[in-house]
Every structure is written in structure tokens, then in C-alpha cells.
């Protein structure tokens, strides 16, 4: 008994060419994408670098330190205004067996002698 009726519809040279061209086209398309994405990355990382390098030109390092120190001193001198009154809010809860002490604790605790 034969498992498969082997009747090749295409010559082997064509089959191999299809496979070879197939994988080659996959590579070509994805290599094109690699280059486009690299260009993409180059443009965007360059843009970042340009913005990063421009920043120090606008203001010197000493001035940044002075501003940060001034802000730190100013903020540390600030206090929230707090009320001196302390209040305890009484909360009344509806009765529920879930919060009932009677049901939650043992009423006659047993003493276990070790």
C-alpha cells in the first residue's frame, strides 16, 4: 500500500526555484525595511541629540546650579499651614453580624495551660 500517490505537478527545478525565490524575496523585503528603519532611527536619534546639545547653550551650568539651589532653599523654607485643632470623628456604623464583637470573639475564652 502506498501512502501517497506521488505525481509531481511541476518539475523539480521549478519547485526549487519557487522556494529559493520565495526566501530571497522575504529577505529582500525585510532588508529594505532594515535600511528604512535605520534611516528612521538615524533621523530621530539625531533630532534628540540636536535638542539635547542645544539646551546647555541657552544657559550655563553655573546658572542651572544656582537656580536649583535657590529653588531648593525656597521649597525647604515653606511649610504647610496646619490647623492646631485635633478632632476625632465619631463614626456610627449600622449593626452587622460581620462587625459584631459578640460574634467575632470567643465569649468565654478558655485558658489552655501549657
Amino acid at each position: 500500500m502506498t501512502l501517497f500517490v506521488i505525481d509531481y505537478p511541476l518539475p523539480w527545478s521549478n519547485i526549487l526555484l519557487i522556494a529559493l525565490f520565495g526566501i530571497a524575496i522575504v529577505f529582500v523585503v525585510l532588508v529594505v525595511l532594515v535600511y528604512i528603519m535605520r534611516l528612521f532611527g538615524y533621523v530621530f536619534t539625531r533630532k534628540h541629540k540636536v535638542t539635547n546639545t542645544k539646551a546647555p547653550l541657552a544657559i550655563s551650568e553655573e546658572e542651572v546650579v544656582a537656580i536649583v539651589t535657590a529653588l531648593r532653599l525656597y521649597n525647604s523654607a515653606l511649610h504647610d499651614k496646619e490647623s492646631d485643632m485635633l478632632t476625632i470623628n465619631r463614626i456610627t456604623r449600622m449593626y452587622s453580624p460581620w462587625n459584631s464583637k459578640i460574634h467575632g470573639l470567643t465569649q468565654m475564652p478558655e485558658h489552655h495551660n501549657k
Partner: peptide, 21 residues
């Protein structure tokens, strides 16, 4: 996007499709 070389690895892994073909 951060590592476009990954596209090549994605392409190489399609080798199985064509060998199985």
C-alpha cells in the same frame, strides 16, 4: 524599531516555510 537588525532574524526564521514546502 530600536533594533532594525531584528528584521533579518525574522526573515531567517521563515526558512522553515520554504524548506517544508
Amino acid at each position: 524599531i530600536a533594533n532594525p537588525k531584528s528584521f533579518l532574524l525574522g526573515a531567517a526564521a521563515q526558512l522553515g516555510i520554504f524548506l517544508t514546502f
